[in-house]
Every structure is written in structure tokens, then in C-alpha cells.
Design a protein around this nucleic acid. Structure first.
Lengths: 352, 352
DNA sequence: ATGAAAGCGCTAACAC
DNA sequence: GTGTTAGCGCTTTCAT
């Protein structure tokens, strides 16, 4: 074994080592690695051989330093854990939500062709948020995808301010110059209303999401508008928290104040499941006595019986598109912000 | 505004800028940033001021280059997507599994005190696996936490080979020198068996996990051993795939071959839920006719009615411990490998 | 206690 | 086409 190779074996090989073995300069090796043409094919070959012989792998820190690219993007779960009862519980709630899993899947799929991976960050406290912003400012990621769980999340604005490429899953509460993807939530709600009305439901109610969350509010108003067109001027709504237990509790309240109700629209599937549990507890048959429609078409929709009729949100595709939006902005920060809105579809199963 | 400050405002401030403003050398600034004592407190103060004035944040790539630390660790979901029907579907399945969410939560929680974040990687194909290994070899992460979804995963061995600090969630199929955490699966299965036996169940069956997965096999053998001690020499088992649908199908088969069964132990909660669905479809009351016990105590256990009696696995704590094991190894790669085994507990609810 | 200087491994002008 | 050279921003001996 030549001396050059020997040294290369002990400590990780560098460009320099490869260059020496191949008998060329660092630049040339760098060129073939980065696929820049203008390199004689014979030389290319010998460089490849040298790379194989030395077991060379580029050092990403060194590369990042000069290219000013981290080679990763941040996926930030942002939300204010108001009641800091148990930090872990709150984190679990969002991380085990099937919506998050689907979004994550879409992001990973869109990142893969570029050899990028998401850096997962949970910004649920003031400190955590500062930490996240700090990490990003240090160049720890080339951009950020934000999934805000609640309304008054200061993070989007802060990131825009800092000048870091960032995009949002769902429209921001306060208008800021940032790209996002969203669902036509009102249309989705209308789909649900039309279906309920067509079934003959007259006493309908809504289990809504947290106040201030645009998606939740759009679903509510969209539903109310559509029901009004169907001759139902008043549609009561109780607030839920997007969890199954929350849906269950909400349904209880609804049942108490309106025992004769015959249709329920929940702002997500988890709450719809909870609602179905509560309805069954009260001896209501679904959908004969009360029809139930959910939102999302998450795995939760298939988890119980009857299977949930729901408004499908193409979460994976939305997340993938959002990722592409971010990547484009990382490539060219001067690019104008855009938004792309996806259309929901009604998936009719058994609950309505 | 001084000239020094002005330049600092345009391009990101560097150590050099801070040093100039503070009237000291780079080294000194570096020292105060890295909390090294031996720095005069007056100077410390002026450096802090300069940092604030310039808005300086350290550049992580530059730091990584010299410290040889990436400042992130990889969380790898590894598994062979045999039937490459739909890559996204397979990815979704694992990402929306509540088990994954809990593990992720534990990892994030344990990483947080160190200002680290997990880099999420899915290694589900040959190329993806190569890509992941490549990324790690380049120094893209300081270590890796592996969650293998199936038996013959080549990744653990490869990482050990490459010499990258890595740890495993659950014992490896083939013994290799790597640290891991695991659950005393047999003990958990015994808990379930004892409970079923105490209820008077005599015709029990198991819905197992995929063949070859140690955790699944341990649960099965542990259950059988315990039932044998209770005078049940034969316990049939049908193989499931850890999904709810799989559990449903498995229950159907079980019911066909053993209609008089009065107790079922499923290797995870998702399958137990599926089993309950199938049982109800066949008019069996739970737990009166058939008692059902799951495994994990995931959110799925509370998702249906009756609420699931299950063997609790402290996933978050296990993931946190695993993370600490990894961090220790990153700190000192020569440290001996260890394993820590957690004890399960039986959570008695309504299904058994 | 502080500063000077030597890299860490790579890319990208710029020459030839 | 290929090599030379100058950094990227930081940490860290080694002097002082």
C-alpha cells in the first residue's frame, strides 16, 4: 500500500489526499465531485479511482462554511403551551396527531430528491422559541417550515423579520409577507353542509377548533353560510381543542343544550371520533339518529365504527408543495411570496 | 453609528467584528462565548456589549469545521419496504403510528437541554439507506438513533462498521456491539397472561407481530410460557403487521379457526383495536365474551370503547434514556456499550 | 489573562 | 482544461 493511501486510512481522507493519490490538484477533484464539466474524462476516471481508494467522503461542515448552505431545513412545530401542565404531554399530543405524521411524510418525500432532511424543532415555550430562532440564525438550517398549532404564534413574524426563508402550513393569522399553502376550508365545510342537508338533517351543530385558528374559523363560517343557504339560519357551535377527548366533551355539551340534534360537523377527525363515542354513550345511532362528518381524512377516520364520512385534506401533497415553495425561496430569496390553496373533497363513508 | 458597527450591520457579524468593536482579540471573544474563565470580568462585559451591538451569532458551520461536531443527531426510521407498492403509504404508516410520536417526543425532550435537534431520516429503500449512511459519514450528524421496523435491517451493522456512534431502540436481531434500550417484553406478556388467566379465560389466542421482530417474538413466547404455567399448553397465534387493519384481519382468522375463544392478547394496541372491531362485528361482547389485552398503552388504547386494558411501555422514558446513551457515546466513543431494560406495567381498563 | 497565528476541509475566482 | 491562491468563521495551541 502506498504511503499516500496509508495516511488516508488513519484519519478521514480529505480532498488533498485524493488529489495527491490521483496526481492532480484539489480543484480538479472538487470539480469532478461537484459534477462540473470541463474535466478531461481520463482525469475524471483517475480521480474516481482515487476517491474509491481513499474512501473519501466530503466533509459537510467545510462545505457548508464556504457555500453558506447547511444542507438541512427545519420543520418547526410551533405553538404556545399556555397551560404548562406537562410539557411532555403537550408535545406528545401534537407529535402523535396523525395530521403531523402525514405532514412530516410529505415534507420528507419532497426533500428526498435533494438529499435533504428535516431538522425537527418544537417551539412550545418562550425559551424554546428563542433557542430555535438562535439555531436558525447560526445557519443551522437553510430555511424553515412552520406548522403553528395556535393562533397568536409570534414565530412566523420573527422569522420573516430575521430574514430567514420560511413558509407556513396554513394562512397566517396576521397578514405577513410569507408563502404558505392552505386548504379551501370554507369549501370543505360547504361540502359537509351540503351532504348533511341532502340527508335531511335540520338540527345540526358544529364542534369547532380553538378560537383564533384561521382554519377552524373558516370551517365554522363556511359551514354556517352553507347551512343558511339550506334554510338553517342558526347553527350552534362549541369549541373543541382538536383532540378526541375534546370532541367527546364538546359533544356532551352539545347534546345537553340541543338533545334533538340530528347532524354534527367536527372540525377534525379526532374530535369527530370523540363525538361518536359520546353519541353512542347516549344511545344515539350513527348515522340514523345523528349523522357525523369529520375533517382531514386522517387515519382516525378509519379507526372506529361506523367509518367516518369526512372532508379530505391532501396533507401530504400540501406539505410537499410547501416544501417546494421553501426550497425555491432558499434558492432565490428575492422570489415573491406566493400561496397555493388546495381543494378538499368529501369522502362518504358510513357516519353520514 | 461607528464604522465598525455599520459594516457589521450589512453582512452577518463575525468574531472579528465583535473583537474590533470590543477592542480585544478574536480569541478573547471566543473565550467569553464559550464560557471559558480566565477572562477579566471588565473585558467580559465589554465583549458582551459588543456582541449585543453587532448582533453577532456564531456561525455553526465554522464551528463544526473545527470542533468536528455537527450539533445534531440523526433519528433514523429504518425498515425494508419489501412491497414497494407505494413508498408514501409505507412512510405514512410508521410516521402516524403513535409509537413513533411518543419515541420522537422522548428524543426531543432529552436533546433539548443540550440545544440539539433530531435530523429525521427514513431509510426504507436501498438507495435511501446508502444516502443516510453517506450523510452520516460526511459528518451530517454526530450520532444516530435507530428505530428499526423490521427484522433483517442491515443498517445497525453498517453504522457500527462505519464507526459512527449509534444506538438502537430495541435489541438487535443479530448480536452486534451496540447500545440499546428495550422493554422486558416477556414480563409484559406474562402480565397479560396472568390477568387473562385470573379472569378465567381458557381459550386464549395471540395476535402477534411480524415474524423475526424480537419484540414480537418475545411477547409471544412470554405469553405462551405464562399460559402454560396456568395450564394452557396450546396458544394459537396469527401473525399481524402492527396495524389496526392487520389486527382486524388477524382476528377474523382467529375467530374462524377457534370460535369459542374467550381471550385475546395483541402484540400492540393498534392491532388490539382492530381485533375489538372484528369481535364486535361478530357480536362478541368485550370483555364478557372475549377479553382483549393490548400492548404499548398508546393513544390508541383510549381511542375506542371499551377502553383497552394494555401492557404499558414507557416509550418516552425509553427514548430519552436511549438518547442519553447516544450522547454519552458521542462524548466518549470508547465507552463500553450497554443496554437498559425497562419494566412494563399492566394498565387495567375495560377490555379485560 | 490576553494575543498571534495556524489551521479545520472545502469552493471559487483567477491565472495559465 | 487544470492549477494556484485566497479565503469562509471559528477554535486552540503557544507565546507573552
Amino acid at each position: 500500500m502506498s504511503d499516500a493511501l496509508r495516511t488516508a486510512a488513519s484519519r478521514p481522507a480529505t480532498l488533498e489526499d485524493v488529489a495527491r493519490v490521483a496526481g492532480v490538484s484539489r480543484s480538479t477533484v472538487s470539480r469532478v465531485i461537484n459534477g462540473i464539466r470541463n474535466v478531461d474524462s481520463d482525469i475524471q476516471e483517475s480521480v474516481r479511482l482515487a476517491i474509491a481508494a481513499t474512501g473519501y467522503v466530503p466533509n459537510s461542515a467545510a462545505r457548508s462554511l464556504v457555500t453558506r448552505r447547511a444542507g438541512s431545513i427545519a420543520l418547526i412545530l410551533s405553538g404556545v403551551t399556555e397551560e404548562i401542565e406537562d410539557e411532555e404531554r403537550a408535545r406528545n399530543r401534537v407529535l402523535t396527531d396523525p395530521f403531523f405524521g402525514r405532514a412530516l411524510s410529505g415534507v420528507i418525500g419532497a426533500l428526498r430528491p435533494f438529499g435533504l432532511h428535516p431538522l425537527l424543532m418544537v417551539a412550545d415555550t418562550v425559551e424554546a422559541r428563542d433557542q430555535v430562532v438562535g439555531h436558525l440564525k447560526q445557519g443551522g438550517a437553510d430555511g424553515a417550515i412552520l406548522v403553528s398549532t395556535d393562533a397568536d404564534d409570534p414565530l412566523p413574524a420573527r422569522l420573516v423579520e430575521v430574514g430567514l426563508p420560511a413558509v407556513l402550513f396554513a394562512r397566517p393569522v396576521h397578514p405577513i409577507p410569507i408563502s404558505y399553502v392552505d386548504l379551501a376550508n370554507r369549501d370543505g365545510a360547504r361540502l359537509a353542509a351540503d351532504h348533511l342537508a341532502a340527508r335531511g338533517c335540520r338540527q345540526v351543530a358544529v364542534i369547532g377548533g380553538p378560537t383564533g385558528v384561521p382554519a377552524a374559523e373558516d370551517r365554522l363560517t363556511g359551514f354556517r353560510e352553507a347551512m343558511a343557504r339550506h334554510g338553517c339560519p342558526y347553527v350552534p357551535c362549541v369549541e373543541g381543542d382538536f383532540t378526541q377527548r375534546g370532541g367527546e366533551a364538546a359533544m356532551e355539551r352539545l347534546l345537553a343544550q340541543q338533545p334533538d340534534l340530528d347532524g354534527v360537523f367536527a372540525a377534525n377527525d379526532l374530535m369527530a371520533q370523540g363525538a361518536m363515542l359520546a353519541l353512542r354513550e347516549h344511545g344515539r345511532r350513527i348515522p340514523e339518529d345523528v349523522a357525523v362528518i369529520g375533517f382531514d381524512d386522517s387515519s382516525a377516520a378509519l379507526a372506529g365504527r361506523p367509518q367516518l364520512t369526512t372532508v379530505r385534506q391532501p396533507v401530504e401533497a400540501m406539505a410537499a408543495e410547501l416544501t417546494r415553495l421553501l426550497l425555491a425561496r432558499v434558492e432565490d430569496p428575492s422570489r415573491a411570496v406566493t400561496s397555493v390553496i388546495f381543494e378538499p373533497t368529501l369522502i362518504v363513508r358510513q357516519s353520514a
